[in-house]
Design a protein around this nucleic acid. Structure first.
Length: 278
DNA sequence: GGCCAGGGTAGAA
DNA sequence: TTCTACCATGGC
């Protein structure tokens, strides 16, 4: 692949590509070597090389990927502000290089509909299959397909790709967006209003809406509560309460406008710990 | 081979 | 408004 531009990041305390890619916010990337990754967004692609002293993003659209990796945000300050809050210290020390990517709302919408009650490896596989069959051929890879391209396909098409009972959600939601559901309007709404609007789309409930708002619209006052977060909440805060809405309300009360960041550090920490230490 | 996954929907109460 | 049964699939 040919890249004309590069972005050099000298502060590796606030940028670690492994933390960024494995904290559950993105499903389209491939590992080339222990420290080299290809990352895909919409119809674009970049290569990230992580070293001890710096990280380099090779791309063909400097501005897009500067914004995509949220390089204008001071994560040192965010981590400092989070550190005096409960539960977060170990998680931030572990996943210090996490950043919340500014991804495409439409891509997040489809990706997190697929994520419902699903495993991450399988989510990646289904998204890859959708791109390969409906996305524009970019030569070395496939773009994420448009709503129009996805709306043309039938439910059984998505079933054949392995989407299971989410096939119907994908078809319906793609058609609604292709028919004029305005994803840009969400930017101007507050998180509660935005969540309600997103939940009028099929396959989008409270948790999926939170993920779309956090990863697609960079709204930080939301806290996606999945099974992993539920486990942490039960272990560390309150084992009696298992109602998702109550857990979410509690966590947002603790972390406020930094909820989205806190969620990512905690999610990454919990999953990696379980992966390596059972 | 059974358990579980970045949960949501429809229908009941 | 809140609670339940049910949902397809495959990684582990």
């Amino acid at each position: 692949m040919n890249f004309r531009e590069n972005i050099i990041i000298n502060n590796t305390q606030d940028f670690n590509i492994i933390h960024i890619l494995q904290c559950g916010q993105i499903f389209r990337y491939t590992q080339l070597s222990p420290n080299e990754f290809l990352v895909y967004s919409k119809d674009k692609c970049c290569k990230v090389v992580q070293n001890d002293t710096n990280a380099i993003i090779y791309c063909n659209d400097y501005d897009y990927f500067y914004n995509y990796f949220d390089l204008g945000t001071d994560y040192t300050a965010i981590k400092k502000a989070l550190m005096d809050k409960p539960l977060i210290n170990e998680a931030v020390n572990f996943g210090y290089g996490v950043r919340i990517l500014r991804q495409d709302p439409w891509e997040m919408l489809i990706s997190f509909i697929i994520s419902a009650n699903n495993h991450i490896p399988r989510i990646k596989k289904i998204i890859q299959a959708i791109c390969a069959s409906l996305g524009q051929n970019m030569g070395d890879y496939y773009a994420f397909p448009t709503a129009q391209a996805m709306a043309k396909m039938t439910e059984s098409f998505y079933k054949d790709l392995g989407a299971g009972y989410r096939a119907d959600y994908l078809q319906c939601t793609a058609k609604m967006v292709a028919d004029g559901f305005d994803l840009n309007e969400i930017y101007s709404l507050n998180s509660d209003q935005a969540s309600k609007k997103l939940q009028t789309l099929k396959g989008v409930g409270a948790k999926v809406a939170d993920c779309i708002l956090l990863f697609g619209y960079h709204k930080q006052d939301v806290f996606p509560v999945d099974t992993w977060i539920k486990q942490v909440f039960a272990e560390k805060i309150n084992s009696q309460c298992d109602k998702t809405t109550e857990i979410r309300k509690n966590l947002i009360q603790i972390y406020g406008d930094l909820s989205g960041y806190a969620q990512q550090y905690i999610f990454y920490y919990k999953r990696e710990k379980d992966k390596h230490f059972g």
